[in-house]
Amino acid sequence: MSGYNFAYLDEDTKRMIRRAILKGLAVPGYQVPFASREMPMPYGWGTGGVQVSAAVLVPEDVMKVIDQGADDTTNAVSIRAFFQKTAQVAVTEATGEATLIQTRHRIPERPLTEDQILVYQVPIPEPLRFLEPRETETRKMHALAEYGLMHVKLYEDIARHGEIATSYAYPVKVADRYVMDPSPIPKFDNPKLESAAIQLFGAGREQRIYALPPWTPAVSLDFEDHPFEARKAPGCCGICGAEDSYLDEVILDDAGGRMFVCSDTDYCRSRVAAAEDAA
């Protein structure tokens, strides 16, 4: 794409985003305000993640983009093509080969390594937003580490349903200080937040960036008598047989036939390939 800078954004904008990323890494879980730009894709399509990736990418990177765990969902295809065009980076679908992964709603099944960066697309970065819509109020709560409201909400769930009825975007407490929204990943993925990789979170419309340095404690909120449990649909993948991966439900016919398949398409593909090699 001629006429545009490396990785699309101008250098002023990238510097501004980079400064925000450093603050995010220095204060893990704190949402750093940044002057998000209009991107050539709509808000809600991952503009925060795209801006963070654009600010972090180097020409030598190998990039992977997933949406719902899959490399071939249309928006993942579109974002991957954007960076191929604007940053000329190599791309891959193999989790193990990628140096930078941009994701929406999932953490890959395969554990990430020290040489990898995971960039999340975040719709609503404020974990307290649905309990308190006013930014001025939630900012005070974070300043005072006053998270009682969140515990009340979770406890009301238990009173009503017998358990915490939050199944995704499950809040975590980071480094024993800030309560953070891990983006709408299923709570099955929460234990993977403590990772060897650098994890960066970008919310474009809401103008926030936050981060988890490697190995930062990210503890899912719970109660002693109702400990956090990572959950997924019971059963195994109908394609690769995995029992340990998060499953998507696919409706096969109008008679109620359905099957479950891995949401992480690369994980599924590599298991099938390994089984074929072994055979």
């Binding site: 800078n5 490396f6 990785a7 250098e11 990238k14 510097r15 980079r18 990323i21 450093l22 890494l25 220095a26 600010a55 972090v56 990418l57 180097v58 020409p59 030598e60 020290e114 650098i198 981060a211 340095p213 490697p214």
Partner: peptide, 18 residues
Amino acid sequence: PGRDAARAFRVIMTVLAR
């Protein structure tokens, strides 16, 4: 500037994150 600053930032970010 575009590519070199990106490479420099990657070093800067990595040492602050680790």
